[in-house]
Write a protein that binds this DNA or RNA. Structure first.
Length: 874
RNA sequence: GGGCGCAUAGCUCAGCUGGGAGAGCGCUUGCCUUACAAGCAAGAUGUCAGCGGUUCGAGCCCGUUUGCGCCCACCA
């Protein structure tokens, strides 16, 4: 027994050292070789604040599988890793830490804060990068990037300046999403909507002329303090004569007009809408159309400001309560209805978003979106599964300008300098010392930083050296496939596409592989607040990375969410243990032997059957890998390795390996070793560690990582042997089945009498039938009459087997059994007859299928005849 | 209001361009057979959500209904 391989596989014993060896050996780093085809995946950079979670485990496993397959196919393969500075997420964490230490952002000042932030990054930012290694990720760490490193910063600066110069970046007073907790503006994509129970308040606004009042309905009474008009639909008969009249805004001394605008739906509420341009996106638009004043009543911290009369300094929530109470007291409330509505919340802290008019930086999207839509429309960029392109179109075709400024410190500072003297803004690649307009040196840099997604949008080329013309950029851009979850199509995929087209002149990748989300056993999203997350590192510790990787892929449909629980791990652990033991079997038998080379001898028919199957499955797997059907590929590997190699082939090799014929033993072992080798390669993308460990033990080259992936090979097509051995398997299965039905103990060897025209086939394979079906001795007979004892009968399409079992045979039972068989056959024959008598089928179905049916029918009729004859004998 | 997905064995899910329904777990029976009890062998289980259509043929294509789920959207 080989000492190196323990009885059960223990991933802990080898995963870590194997990874270290890989990384040290430089296998992850591709050569820029013009003779090779490049294949590149840009790793979606995890946040530096991140801890590896199941979502990471899934996406990086998929990427690693694709990369490893391509690497083995001989592509020059780059998987470029890195991390994202995650502006808001990180800043929130650092502020929390500072607060705990009794410090605040403000007390430290910008520079002091950034110093602390970099310290924090050094200390904790590397966690996830280390954890990625535990998964087996074969990314090129020598090219590891960070969205705020020098390379990426240079790219960000360049892109900002270019867009500004083209007029595609502008600063303006617009209504934006404001998070009163994070104290920053957010883009539309960063707002999540939650259904909340609330009320619809009906408030009376009296006409100034004393002719009664108008009732408006609102979900946000506190914003009435910023109302500047009430709008109705121009076609609304109810209000037609009211348009132009003035109203007195309750609780204030303001007088506001009734205006007409198409936006208003007459059928909702009272058909009259209060207009607060400063705190509602629609009202803002109406305000623009009607030239209305913008009165901001809520300050950045979510409290009412000096425009809010006596409500100043109350929070939004407090102000709502007091406004409603005061309105009630004064008789301005007509009624209050329960109402459920969508409230926008910050995607980071879940605080209710406050729409606020504010001066921010924007990217003008219209021009950028067009070609980005086009490349997906014309399939230059393909979404896989295809349906996700709809999600993409839906977003891109309705896109609004992108608010890119954030009132934060952690991030890329906006490269714009304001002149205190003339107000001009200087935007440039180098930090300016004076205003480019008036020459004043009295300038200061914009305080804001960029949306974190602005830098991630450049990831496919910033990491390769853009704006410099590097050989990496030239070789690997556009990249091959982007792999990510459907949840960040908007945040990231869309923005990479238009950024790539705009800055590189070409889309950044030709395929976008979208996968689902890992959910818990009940189908809920895994989240910190629910506490239902599973820690992938714990799973790796317990089962090994290979088992985790395989479990995440096995049988998963493309783009589908995965309900995951730990119990999915065990069957895979057992599978890899099976592989491990098959390798032990191989190893212990080849040890110390000199095996002949494949090709230098004629393989046995069993070997040919196996080689044929291996060849077929290799071919199918390549197709599955390149079309990203990893769920199918993994299931196929499971079935092939366990179901064919272990259950059948290894058993088939035993007669030769444990036999006396030294030559046939060596040949068999040579093929067995080859089959193991190829199987390991096929499995390697999914289970890199165990396959490498076994590879090493089998004494192959220095690493399986760079071994050539098996592809279809003409020389290994053995149709005839394949067909024959499949039939031998059928015979063995039939005998086993019979034994089980008859309660024949496994230890009891039985004698077979076979009647057949294909004596050769049985003779050459008799040893396998004997071994695997527990038989001893096969005799050929010309008819069952040659037997003079009680026996059971098996009929296959080419043989009749008679098995004398003495007292175990009960004629009545045997008759029953045979009748069941006959019933089945009759059904089949009926089916075949009806198909073949159907003119439509015969004339329209593919010829080979019709032919197949004919053969089947003939065979079944033949079997029926022979079975019936046997029954008559009984 | 638009768009998308899912409904297949008791449970979790596969099923690629339409050609006799599959896997894992669980269950039943028998086995410590010299790689493996994390195993071996044998077995049972399905109106592929309902209805209609296309087709020689539908789990798969088209239409429709029902029940879940997700995404987007300015009905205050």
């Amino acid at each position: 027994m080989n000492k190196k391989l323990a009885k059960n596989f223990e991933p802990k014993n080898f995963e870590k050292s194997i990874y270290e060896k890989w990384e040290k050996s430089g296998y992850f780093t591709p050569e820029i070789d013009p003779n090779k085809e490049p294949f590149c995946i840009m790793m979606p950079p995890p946040n530096i604040t991140g801890q590896l979670h199941m979502g990471h485990a899934l996406t990086y496993t998929i990427q690693d599988i694709i990369i490893r397959h391509r690497r083995m196919l001989g592509y020059s393969t780059l998987w470029l890793p890195g991390t994202d500075h995650a502006s808001i997420a990180t800043e929130v964490k650092i502020v929390e830490m500072l607060n705990k230490q009794g410090m605040t952002k403000e007390s430290l000042g910008r520079e002091g804060f950034l110093e602390k932030a970099y310290e924090w990054k050094e200390k904790y930012g590397g966690t996830i990068v280390k954890q990625l290694r535990c998964l087996g990720s074969s990314c090129d760490w020598t090219k590891e990037a960070f969205t705020m490193d020098e390379r990426c910063s240079k790219a960000v600066r360049e892109v900002f300046v270019r867009l500004y110069e083209k007029g595609l970046i502008y600063q303006g007073d617009r209504i934006i999403n404001w998070c009163p907790s994070c104290l920053t503006a957010l883009s539309d994509a960063e707002v999540e909507y939650e259904n909340q129970d609330s009320h619809l308040w009906y408030i009376k606004y009296p006409y100034l002329d004393g002719s009664g009042y108008m009732v408006i309905a609102t979900t946000r009474p506190e914003t009435m303090l910023g109302d500047v008009a009430v709008a109705v639909n121009p076609n609304d008969k109810k209000y037609r004569d009211k348009v132009g009249k003035m109203l007195k805004l309750p609780l204030t001394d303001r007088e506001i007009p009734v205006i007409a605008d198409d936006y208003v739906e007459s059928s909702f509420g009272t058909g009259a809408v209060k207009i607060t341009p400063a705190h509602d996106p629609n009202d803002f638009e109406i305000g623009l159309r009607h030239n209305l004043e913008v009165i901001k009543v809520i300050a950045d911290d979510g409290k009412m400001n000096e425009n809010a009369f006596e409500y100043v300094n109350l929070t939004r929530e407090e102000a709502r309560v007091k406004v409603v109470k005061d309105l009630e007291k004064l008789g301005y409330i007509e009624k209050i209805e329960d109402y459920e509505h969508n409230v926008g919340c910050c995607y980071r802290c879940h605080t209710s978003i406050e729409p606020i008019v504010s001066k921010q930086w924007f990217v003008s999207m219209e021009e950028l979106a067009k070609p980005a839509i086009e490349v997906v429309r014309d399939k230059s960029v393909k979404f896989i599964p295809e349906r996700f392109s709809k999600t993409y179109f839906n977003w891109m075709e309705n896109i609004k300008d992108w608010c890119i400024s954030r009132q934060l410190w952690w991030g890329h500072r906006i490269p714009a300098w304001h002149c205190r003297d003339c107000g001009h803004i200087t935007v440039s690649r180098e930090n300016p010392t004076k205003c480019e307009n008036c020459g004043s040196t009295n300038i200061y840099q914009d305080e804001d930083v960029l949306d974190t997604w602005f830098s991630s949008a450049l990831w496919p080329f910033s990491t390769l050296g853009f704006p410099d013309k590097t050989k990496e950029l030239d070789y690997f851009y556009p990249t091959s496939v982007l792999v990510t979850g459907y949840d960040i199509i908007f945040f990231w995929v869309a923005r990479m596409i238009f950024s790539g087209i705009e800055n590189m002149g070409k889309y950044p990748f030709s395929e976008v592989l979208i996968h689902g989300i890992v959910r818990d056993a009940e189908g809920r999203k895994m989240s910190k607040s629910l506490g239902n997350g599973i820690d992938p590192l714990m799973l790796i510790e317990k089962y090994g990375a290979d088992v985790l990787r395989f479990s995440l892929c096995m049988g998963v449909a493309p783009g589908a969410d995965i309900k995951f629980s730990e119990d999915k791990m065990e069957p895979i652990r057992n599978f890899l243990n099976k592989l491990w033991n098959a390798s032990r079997y191989t190893l212990m038998n080849i040890e110390g032997l000199e095996l002949p080379k494949l090709g230098s001898f004629e393989p046995s028919n069993i070997d040919k059957w196996m080689l044929h199957k291996l060849n077929q499955v290799s071919d199918e797997l390549n197709k599955n890998f390149t079309s990203y059907e990893l769920g199918l590929a993994s299931a196929k590997l499971y079935d092939f390795i366990w179901g064919e190699v272990c259950d059948w082939y290894i058993e088939f090799t035993k007669p030769a390996i444990y036999g006396d014929d030294e030559e046939s033993k060596l040949k068999t072992l040579a093929v067995l070793k080859y089959v193991m080798q190829q199987s390991l390669k096929l499995l390697h993308p999914f289970a890199p560690f165990i396959t490498e460990e076994i590879w090493q033990n089998l004494g192959y080259s220095e690493t399986i990582m760079l071994a050539s992936f098996p592809v279809f090979n003409d020389e290994f097509c053995f149709e005839k042997e394949h067909y024959e051995i499949e039939h031998v398997k059928d015979i063995i299965k039939a005998i086993r089945n019979l034994r089980a039905q008859m309660d024949v103990l496994p230890s009891k060897k039985i004698q077979l009498y076979i009647q057949t025209d294909k004596k050769d086939l049985i003779e050459t394979n008799s040893v396998y039938i004997e071994k695997l079906a527990g038989c001893k001795g096969i005799s050929f007979v010309n008819s069952s009459y040659e037997l003079n004892e009680k026996f059971a009968t098996i009929v296959t399409s080419i043989v009749q087997i008679y098995i004398p079992l003495g007292d175990l045979i009960d004629v009545k039972k045997e008759l029953e059994r045979l009748n069941v068989e006959i019933e089945k056959l009759n059904k089949e024959i009926k089916r075949g007859n009806s198909m073949l008598s159907n003119q439509g089928f015969v004339s329209k179905a593919p010829k080979h299928l019709v032919e197949e049916e004919r053969k089947k029918l003939a065979a079944n009729k033949d079997k029926l005849e022979r079975l019936s004859a046997r029954i008559k004998e009984l």
